[in-house]
Amino acid sequence: MENETLDTAVLILEGLMVSPQSSVPAFVILLVLYVFIMVSNMGLVVLIFTDRSLHQPMYLLFCNMSINDAFGASTIIPRLLSDIFLPSSERYIYYYDCVVQAFCAHFHASNTHTVLMIMAFDRYMAICNPLRYATIMTTRMVAGLSVAAWAVSLFLVTILLGLSIRLSRCRRVIFNPFCDNASLFKLSCESVLINNIYGLSYTVVLLGSSLGSIVLTYLRIAMVCLSSRNKSVNSRALQTCATHLAMYIIMIVSGSIIIILHRFPQLSAHRKLASIMFHVVPPTMNAIIYGLQIKTVREKILILFTRNSVTVGDLRVNKL
């Protein structure tokens, strides 16, 4: 009995399956992407919080997305990097470490949906109710929406992982690049019917809510823009909405690819790669989209770099 407990307490994690020749390039690419994700997303958060002119609901809500993106990347990438040069048979992970990673991975994915939903609500209020926007989207409202978005995700994911933790374990190999809920309940030889039912319901509710809110919000925004004759207002509305919509499309496409590939067991390797890309591509693209497409943020970044260049130049002149 003790041997069985020991065996299932230490799992073997498949990790990133690459050939020895591809290990170094894969490591470098992942490391560069991770550094970029952390620097770009956390840099935007610091910029928004330190510049009072950016203390607007749209930017404060985007901080939720940047923090969540950095959190999601940190959940997956460091572990992949640490195991990439190890043989697959030596990639050990403690069961409860695996549970924590699975929880964080699903928490990040759920937050992506809920945060984008409250950002859609913000755009709806700004465009469809501009006269009431300032009185409704107060700092208190922004904080309340942010807490609600994270709390809903926490509640849903806690139940999801709780149903898997209750199961006994008879296997010890995780056939996935990282731990997730499906990998955990597949370790059990018990019936996982309840897990499958809740997992499906969780996906339908979360995906249906986010997709439905985005569609309804943008239909309403489109109707307002079409009925308005103010071209400058419509142009600004389309710019901010296009940024938000691009973020949502990147996220939904990345997630849908994983769901579709689940239906084709022969494409298991492609699904595993897609699951990693879900935690890499959206965090990378979100920072680029917001950092470069929104004029205010772009100007602040350019001023920051210009100031640094001038400072370096002055130091060189003083030394001469």
Rank of each mutant, 00 (worst) to 15 (best):
V192T: 15
L320Y: 09
E14Y: 07
A242D: 08
F185G: 01
G15V: 01
V35R: 08
I303P: 00
Y92T: 07
N41L: 04
S110G: 14
R316E: 09
S268T: 14
A246E: 06
F305M: 10
E190C: 12
T139I: 13
F264H: 10
Y124E: 04
C104W: 06
M285F: 12
S82W: 08
R123N: 05
I259T: 08
R298Y: 08
V157M: 06
I288Q: 07
M38N: 06
Y124D: 05
F278M: 09
A222Y: 03
W150Y: 13
A287C: 11
M42L: 15
A246W: 01
H262F: 13
L211D: 04
E299A: 10
M277F: 11
F71D: 00
R140G: 12
L315K: 15
C63N: 05
G313E: 13
L6F: 13
I289W: 04
R166A: 11
G212H: 06
H262L: 05
V215M: 12
N318R: 12
R229F: 10
R52G: 00
V192A: 12
N318L: 14
L44R: 00
I127V: 15
L219G: 13
R123G: 03
S188N: 09
K186V: 00
Q21R: 09
T284H: 10
L187F: 05
L156S: 04
P282G: 03
F121I: 15
F185P: 00
D7Q: 09
S19M: 06
F85Q: 06
S40R: 03
A70M: 07
M58N: 01
M38D: 05
M17N: 15
N318S: 14
S40C: 15
A9K: 02
F49G: 05
A151V: 14
P78K: 10
S74I: 05
V310L: 14
I221V: 12
D51T: 10
M137E: 01
E4P: 02
I252E: 05
Y34N: 04
R140Q: 15
M251A: 11
T217L: 04
S53L: 07
A109S: 15
H106G: 01
P25W: 05
S210P: 01
D314R: 14
Q56P: 01
I84D: 04
K272F: 09
Y248D: 03
E299P: 00
T5H: 08
H279V: 11
A246M: 09
T243L: 13
D51S: 08
V233H: 11
I136G: 08
Y34G: 02
S232Y: 08
V32M: 15
H279P: 00
K231H: 09
C241G: 03
I301R: 03
Y96L: 08
I250E: 01
T75G: 06
L161M: 08
V24C: 03
G255Q: 02
I258P: 00
T158R: 07
K231V: 13
A102S: 09
